[in-house]
Computed example of a mutant assay.
Amino acid sequence: MSHTRELFDAEPVKPAILRKVIALPPTEAKIVLHFLSAKKTAEGTVLQSGMAIAKEIGMNRSQYARKIKDVLAAGWVEQAAKEQNIAYYRLGPEAGATDNATVIPLRRRAS
């Protein structure tokens, strides 16, 4: 996937948020910590597929697919965009995200 969007380093995480994360089940905590520390677009979207995230955090794809649903339901992340069958996420209100700007749809560039 090739995007020309500028990615920004993660913001520092508040200690209160980290305390909540470490209380999560280990697989969910891994996912949330990834989203907290990942580079994001100006809108807060992490431009990685679930398969790429799963590989990076040491999970298989099916385990990630099951656990991301729990993380979504708990409000740690929320879907920011969807391109074909790939969903992209950003931090949700449980992770302290308070200003989720309007999402600009992701588009592929012609090769």
Rank of each mutant, 00 (worst) to 15 (best):
M1L: 15
S2M: 14
S2V: 15
H3I: 12
T4H: 15
T4E: 15
R5W: 10
E6W: 05
L7C: 08
D9G: 12
E11Y: 10
E11V: 00
E11I: 07
P12T: 04
P12F: 09
P12N: 05
V13F: 14
A16G: 07
A16R: 14
A16S: 14
I17W: 06
R19D: 13
K20D: 10
K20H: 03
V21R: 04
V21N: 02
I22Q: 14
I22A: 02
I22V: 12
A23Q: 13
L24V: 01
P26T: 00
P26W: 00
P26K: 00
T27F: 05
T27A: 04
T27M: 08
E28H: 10
A29L: 02
A29S: 12
K30S: 15
F35Q: 02
L36A: 05
L36F: 05
L36N: 00
L36G: 03
S37I: 03
A38L: 12
T41G: 08
A42Y: 10
A42N: 07
A42C: 03
A42L: 12
E43K: 07
E43H: 01
G44P: 09
T45S: 09
S49C: 03
M51Q: 11
M51V: 12
A52I: 02
A52T: 04
A52Y: 06
I53Y: 07
A54I: 00
K55I: 01
E56N: 05
E56F: 09
G58Q: 01
R61D: 06
R61E: 06
S62M: 03
S62G: 00
R66I: 02
R66A: 05
K67E: 12
K67W: 08
I68L: 08
I68G: 04
D70E: 08
A73K: 10
A74N: 01
A74W: 02
G75I: 00
E78V: 14
E78F: 03
A80W: 05
A81G: 03
A81T: 06
K82D: 04
E83R: 13
Q84K: 14
Q84D: 11
A87T: 05
Y88E: 09
Y89V: 04
R90K: 13
R90N: 07
L91N: 09
G92T: 07
P93V: 12
P93C: 06
E94A: 15
E94N: 05
E94R: 15
A95K: 07
G96I: 08
N100M: 12
A101M: 07
T102Y: 10
V103K: 15
V103M: 15
L106F: 13
L106M: 11
R107K: 14
R108N: 10
R109G: 09
R109Y: 12
A110T: 11
